[in-house]
Amino acid sequence: MPRVTFREERCKGCELCKNFCPKGIVEMAGHINAMGFHPATVTDIEKCTGCATCARMCPDMVIEVEKEEKKVG
């Protein structure tokens, strides 16, 4: 299962990650961060494919994506 880490304190709540997630699993959290934004988070990590589309559309580099390495052969 991929791991998606959000640097919550840097999120400006622009929702581009949420908008472009092909699985629709990025949501804005109910709480607000120190800058006053509702930060992005993943609701259902089971469905995440680790495509990193969210990270690539994030203007603030809030998101880091890790994935199991595929075993070859």
């Binding site: 990270a55 690539r56 580099m61 998101i63 880091e64 890790e66 199991e68």
Partner: peptide
């Protein structure tokens, strides 16, 4: 775990304005 996406090294680790 392999990093699929992380901050490029040429970009200083600081918040954008």
């Amino acid at each position: 775990m392999k990093k699929i996406f992380s901050r490029p090294e040429s970009l200083k680790d600081m918040p954008f304005h």
